[in-house]
Design a protein around this nucleic acid. Structure first.
Lengths: 200, 200
DNA sequence: TCTACTAACTAACGATAGTTAGTATAGGAT
DNA sequence: ATCCTATACTAACTATCGTTAGTTAGTAGA
């Protein structure tokens, strides 16, 4: 028995399972998806899934934790490109650009995180919420910094943060790369909208 | 056998079932909620639910269609208060105010519509999507009118519409009436944010 | 060549889901 | 007083779920 389960090393079959489960969970929901459906999408039998993952919830947790860690690390990597004396506006726009880019390029992962976290065990759910909070608090800090510096003027900094986050998260629900907007163009649009929201 | 099922006339027990199912579906998800759980929340046995609704999906459809019709009718009622020569800005702010008020006051209904429509039958799902599209297209029209009149300046009117819709929908996920923001205050905040998004 | 391991298979288990059948009871209308 | 309807109950059915057991074919290393 091997049961990779860890998002690090993994066989080709485990990756096939991840891909199939991600698509099925995101489109049909975690509870509504059966192990037999996942197996059929991969081309094996349901019992063989247990050679790669310990349980159905293990697959969900694998996908969820990977998605949240990717989101955090891509966001942190973007922010790290800024000079230490960047203005709050520069920080905000950089955050928004990474936020939009992730949600445009990883629609299924984002959908999973935003709609299917209820399928996780209590312990995994707690860890996921912590990762999500860590991500969201980064925007809250930027917002507070801008307000304190007098360059952002928002009626309520908590509400404004949620609004910016959520309009980006929604991108994962409708954006299609084959449409008439490229990802950089989409990021441009949201940079403008976010910038207007905080400017007096 | 009576099986009211229609959102019009209904017994007190049917309303109890609606309330319990709404809460359970919204918090735990449709697929993850069992008929026995709903029944227990009402204080009856699972089989007795079938005196009031034909199936589990019937309950979901009852709640979903009611929610979408309420959303549409409240929005239309708000727009009807405007004079015929109202400006695009007045129309936008009126739409946003009703949008936010509904999502603040009806968090569970909104959550249901936004996350659990996948549990509906194909036919009911089609009707729900049509109702939702009717709602969303009203904002699109306002946006187009404002852009055509030269008073709105948005980088992409489709994206801007989605952004305004979604930042309001998200309110249903976090707003609590016992917090430090009243519904009118919350509407004020979002009026400002939406107004800024379309103003050059 | 023998061995150990991976990963697939078939078959089946126990639990639980939505649902139905049949029955009992209370209250209003005739 | 008696029917009738509404609504509750108990009991059970059937389907399907996630999961386990036991087995087998292929493969890399000693």
């Amino acid at each position: 028995m091997s049961v990779d389960s860890s998002p690090g090393m993994s066989s080709a079959t485990a990756d096939d399972i991840r891909r199939a489960a991600l698509r099925l969970f995101a489109t049909g929901g975690y509870e509504a998806t059966t192990m037999r459906e996942i197996a059929a999408a991969v081309g094996i039998r349901a019992a063989s899934l247990y050679n790669h993952f310990g349980s159905k919830e293990d697959i969900l947790w694998d996908l969820t934790s990977t998605a949240l860690e990717d989101l955090n690390s891509e966001s942190e990597a973007s922010m790290a490109t800024l000079s230490p004396d960047a203005t709050p506006t520069e920080k905000l726009l950089t955050f928004v650009r990474a936020h939009i880019a992730y949600h445009a390029k990883n629609g299924e992962q984002a959908t999973l995180v935003n709609m299917q976290m209820g399928g996780l065990s209590k312990s995994h759910h707690r860890k996921s919420v912590a990762l999500r909070d860590r991500y969201e608090s980064r925007l809250r800090s930027i917002m507070q910094e801008g307000v304190a510096a007098g360059v952002f003027h928002v009626p309520d900094e908590r509400v404004a943060s949620f609004a910016i986050l959520q309009m980006g998260i929604a991108v994962s629900g409708w954006y299609r790369p084959e449409g008439n907007l490229s990802v950089p163009q989409l990021c441009d649009v949201y940079e403008i909208l976010a910038n207007r929201m905080v400017a007096a």
